[in-house]
Amino acid sequence: MKEHKWRYMTSFLQQTNIPQESKECLERCVDAIYELCGEARQCYSETIKYNENELAKIMLLDGCFILELFVRCHANVEVNEDGQPDPVRKSAWMITALQHDLGLLENQIPFFILVRLYEIVKPRATKNYSVASLALKFFDPLSRKPRPEEKDQLGVNLYQLIKHIL
């Protein structure tokens, strides 16, 4: 999975063919993760054993992987940038396993980390979806309930109240 995570992170951060833009995107994401590390630590009941650099690396890698996975599943992309079949997407059992793994409490990263990473990369992306709507679409096959509306009757964005994927 580590190889897939690195490949997905690279794909997520390279929304253009201009290397300088991809480098700047990576730098902005790294800066954002470091800014949010302290707040992220407070989201866990147990003490996080990783130092700031290790935690930032995990949050960046996992966050980008999750977001790229959501985007690929939403857009039904089944090939890599090189035109070869994506090993993650071509395997139904792997998607099911990822849906299960991402639903486990111990695998949660704070939702605000995902939102911040997506906000940085989103201007480079062609579609305009919220992280919450992408997550709901990814987990839709497991849900027995209708997908909630994004806004309530007063226009309040309910998806902004989300703390984690669960």
Rank of each mutant, 00 (worst) to 15 (best):
L158P: 01
Y118V: 10
E81W: 00
R7M: 11
L60V: 13
A40W: 04
C25Y: 00
E54S: 08
S11H: 11
D152A: 08
M94G: 03
I95L: 10
S143Y: 06
D31Q: 15
I113N: 09
L61D: 04
W93L: 14
K5A: 08
A125N: 08
E81M: 04
G103M: 07
E54L: 09
P87R: 02
T126L: 12
E68I: 01
Y159C: 05
D31S: 15
I66S: 04
K145W: 10
R124F: 11
W93A: 15
L136A: 02
V77G: 00
K163E: 10
L114C: 03
E27T: 11
I33D: 13
V30P: 10
L102R: 02
D140P: 04
A56F: 08
L134P: 00
F65M: 01
H100I: 02
Q84T: 15
E78K: 11
L166K: 07
S133T: 06
P19T: 12
T47R: 14
R72F: 02
Y159R: 06
Q84E: 08
E150S: 06
N80M: 12
F112L: 01
A132G: 13
V131I: 00
S143Q: 15
Q99R: 15
D86E: 01
K137R: 05
L114M: 09
K57D: 13
L102E: 02
F111V: 01
L26I: 09
F138R: 03
V79Q: 13
Y8G: 00
E46S: 12
K137E: 00
F138I: 04
L134Y: 04
F138A: 06
N76R: 10
P141W: 05
V115M: 11
Q160V: 07
Q42L: 15
P87A: 05
D86P: 00
I113W: 10
I113A: 10
N157V: 06
I66W: 04
V71T: 05
C29P: 11
V77R: 03
A132R: 09
A97Q: 13
M9W: 04
R7G: 11
H164Q: 08
V77H: 05
R41M: 15
F111N: 00
D86I: 02
D152L: 10
G155V: 13
S143K: 14
R72M: 08
K137Y: 09
N157W: 02
W6P: 04
G63I: 02
S143M: 15
A125W: 09
Q153H: 12
D152H: 11
E78N: 08
R144C: 06
V88Y: 02
Q108Y: 03
P146K: 02
L67Y: 00
G103I: 02
I165V: 07
K2L: 13
E106V: 12
E68M: 06
P110T: 05
N17W: 15
R147K: 08
P146M: 02
R7P: 04
R72P: 03
L105S: 10
R7L: 12
L60H: 10
I48F: 03
E46C: 10
S133F: 04
R41Q: 13
F70S: 03
N76V: 03
Q160W: 14
K163Q: 13
K5F: 07
K145P: 03
D31M: 11
L69I: 01
Y34V: 13
